[in-house]
């Protein structure tokens, strides 16, 4: 074999090894392109569907935003008109407020004047009430005085009527006594001062003064006893003495014991009588 054949053998060996390496490499780097294509296609379809969904959502959102923008614009226009109307109303209200303030100032001034007048009237009313109260108290007092005077007047009138009645009875008694005296041949004009009435009483009290014994007896001027009369004093049936009347009162009298006729001590409870007279 010559040199050229050796070179071909070596070249054939080298290329055979290269072929085997390439085949092994191709087999080792095997890829399923169909499945890859299918997967990429599926992913593409999904992406397109998502794109369509997003596009429709975008359009819907866009239309919604457009409507909202339009509504907001209309609302803005309405608010502008409302603002203008409220501003006009505010001006009217301000003008009305100014007018009311002016009227309120006038009313306050009038009210103050009325209050002053009211205070004056209240003071006057209080004075009038005081006057009325005083007048009522005076009226009550005068009424009480009039009532008391009326009672006194009635009492006096009753006394007068009683006195007149008693006077009529006394006149009748006098007339009857005068007739009786004349029927018994007695002069009705005889002075009665010299006649001592016949009455009985008791010694109510005794007292010794300036050496003389004073005796108080239970009969007085209502019984006809007068100063200067004499009364006799008895205890049971025994004569005790004689008293000379010094002073008299309507229901009692005071006499001095006449020692010339005294026949025993005179004590409280002794009887006195006017049967005897010392002339």
């Amino acid at each position: 074999m010559n040199f050229l054949g050796k070179c071909f053998v070596v070249a054939l060996f080298v290329m055979s090894c290269a072929f085997m390496g390439a085949a092994i490499a191709a087999y080792g780097a095997h890829r399923d392109l169909k499945a890859e294509k299918q997967r990429i296609q599926t992913q593409l379809n999904q992406t397109q569907a998502q794109l369509q969904t997003k596009t429709s959502e975008f359009q819907r959102t866009n239309s919604s935003l457009t409507q909202e923008k339009q509504a907001a614009t209309e609302r803005l226009i309405q608010l502008e008109s409302e603002k203008a109307r409220l501003a006009e109303r505010n001006r009217d209200a301000q003008a009305e407020l100014d007018a009311l303030r002016t009227a309120s100032g006038a009313a306050i001034a009038g009210m103050e004047a009325t209050q002053i007048s009211n205070n004056a009237l209240a003071d006057e009313l209080n004075e009038l009430r005081d006057s009325i109260r005083e007048a009522l108290s005076d009226k009550d007092r005068y009424f009480a005085t009039a009532l008391e005077a009326t009672e006194k007047f009635q009492a006096i009138r009753n006394d007068i009527e009683s006195a007149l009645e008693q006077n009529r009875e006394l006149v009748a008694d006098t007339s009857r006594m005068t007739s009786l005296l004349r029927a018994n041949n007695l002069d009705p004009n005889t002075p009665a001062d010299a006649i001592t009435p016949k009455v009985d009483g008791v010694v109510s009290r005794t007292k010794r003064e300036n050496g003389a014994q004073l005796v108080e007896i239970s009969i007085g001027s209502d019984d006809g006893i007068r100063a200067g009369d004499t009364v006799d004093v008895f205890r049971n049936t025994k004569y005790r003495g004689r008293l000379e009347i010094l002073r008299t009162a309507p229901d009692r009298a005071v006499g001095r014991v006449d020692v010339r006729f005294q026949q025993g001590p005179i004590q409280e409870g002794d009887r006195v009588t006017t049967r005897l007279k010392l002339s």
Partner: peptide
């Protein structure tokens, strides 16, 4: 047997192995 004979045998074996892998690769696309 010379070295060149061995090289020829190895070259044949390498070609056979390369053909087998190529077949397997082509079979996978069927």
């Amino acid at each position: 047997m010379t070295v060149y004979t061995v090289l020829m045998i190895l070259a044949t074996v390498a070609l056979a192995v390369g053909c087998i892998f190529l077949y397997l690769e082509s079979a996978s696309y069927q």
